[in-house]
Write a protein that binds this DNA or RNA. Structure first.
Lengths: 172, 172, 172, 172
DNA sequence: TTTT
DNA sequence: TTTT
């Protein structure tokens, strides 16, 4: 049994950091990967692949990545399903990252791209059952710390409704 | 831009071979890959990953694989979307295989039953515009010959309406 | 920075389990992977890839794998170099496995292949600085326990001289 | 049988473009990939992985990559051996690239210096039997234009004797 | 609902 | 020095 995915592409939007009811951090984003060939109309297309990252790596990803960031992901494909509010079963296929790589050379993009970072302060992991949508402290300072971005590791949860993020989705 | 997926797991059902309106063969199946860890309830889970294979590989996969076959896939993640008959946009994430490996050692399962290999090939690309929706002979026999079939609950027993398969989906 | 390798092939020989001076288990083997194409002489060739596995996974690999075993490896490429006894610098490129998968279906091969397993008893991890060449207790019983082989994880060290295996080679 | 490698790292030197006696282009370089952990002395290490690329990709790699270029490689591990001029059998493990990705964002390093892209292409396959051993114009300039060249100690500054490159080594 |  |  082997399940391994490696992606290099660009984020379609800023990553979203949330917390499960138990306070576990999870970041999700979509990575656009251009296809190496053109379609029958001669156009270049891309695949838009949902990625989730858990725990410490979630917070790193939220700090160091932004819309357009060239990013590497090493992880696995996960499928899950849930019943939505219309009683319909929704099937989700996403990549759970073991490791996320910030491939943008130092001093580029993110340092300049710091648009809407630094909105409301987060309740944080200790806040219990209320999902957290704001940036963390460290996000606020991210632009200035952007010098030598680290690599980080781990995985799970997508489809942006907070109710979708459960501690049951924790990979381990 | 890198998009690479490697999977080893077992088919949840017999593969389905179809043809696009232009007569291009495409086989789809779901591969179940056990997760290497247990969930919070201590249960072993699996991911059920939809895979498609095109052209000659499609016909090979349809001939050599069956429900339960241990199978390797090397490919890429593809996302696409289409409007379903209810006018709703459906988003699909699946693996497009570059290569499919039949990992069942000889003398086992399907290989032991390897009587009709190469027999009754479907009318194929030359048959023009009529897609082939029924199971092939060998598929039908495969199910009954299956010695120790793992029982998987295939979550992708949806979205396999023939209308989904278009020549526009051809990878190249 | 991404370094990921996935292999499925067959062991060319039984795996070799050793211990570093500090008693850390390390297993090495070579995996033969057939190339998917023929050479200019129309012959099928293979690549013979050295793999190392560390710690608990080393002992599992030694127990469950044997010459000819169909095996999956998920790991990374590692390069290192050392000076051999002729004062020559030797460059080694090998795969360090994070995870090793026994793909042989239960009850096959190994159960029958138990040829020279169960030779002299090993001094074991506690024996300190003397590398251990014999099979472990658990290896002796391997043939009888072979029912549902597990998967296992981790990595490092090749080129069979015991002096090559140092605690400095530990990946973490 | 699966043999898949994905690497993202930086070239230790400019790539070397050569031609087989039959005029087939082959480029080789070493890619340095930092390890995601520190060794027992708390130092960060890297793996130095030899890569070869054939045909059109070879010429692209030679044109677009230079020492220090952040580069993605998707390929397979190849092992081969040959007898060196001392009559000794030399074993080589290297990555044969199916695809090489130039990951340096535009406006940086080599891309900024992208003056002579497509200029002075080597005589190439049509030149017949004369291998090209010297650096290309663009390679020579690349070294001097290199803004912040990482300094890597390339352990594969050996075994690049032209005699190693034979038409028998062609992957297909 | 998509990136450069 | 190689596996099926």
């Amino acid at each position: 049994m082997i399940n391994r995915v490696i992606l290099v592409g660009r984020l379609t939007k800023n990553p979203e950091l949330r917390y499960t009811p138990n306070g576990v951090a999870v970041t999700s984003f979509t990575i656009a990967v251009d296809r190496p060939f053109s379609n029958q109309q001669g156009e270049r297309e891309a695949d838009f692949i949902p990625v989730v990252v858990w725990r410490r790596q979630a917070e790193n990803a939220a700090n160091y990545l932004a819309k357009g960031s060239l990013t590497g992901v090493d992880g696995r494909i996960q499928t899950r399903n849930y019943e939505n509010n219309e009683g319909r079963r929704v099937y989700v296929t996403e990549v759970v990252a073991d490791s996320v790589q910030f491939l943008e050379p130092k001093g580029s993009r993110r340092a300049a791209a710091g648009d809407n970072y630094g909105a409301s302060m987060p309740a944080g992991p200790t806040s219990g059952s209320t999902p957290n949508y704001g940036p963390t402290d460290s996000q606020q300072n991210a632009a200035s710390r952007d010098q030598n971005p680290p690599s980080f590791n781990d995985p799970f949860a997508h489809d942006s409704k907070p109710i979708d993020i459960s501690d049951d989705d924790l990979p381990f």
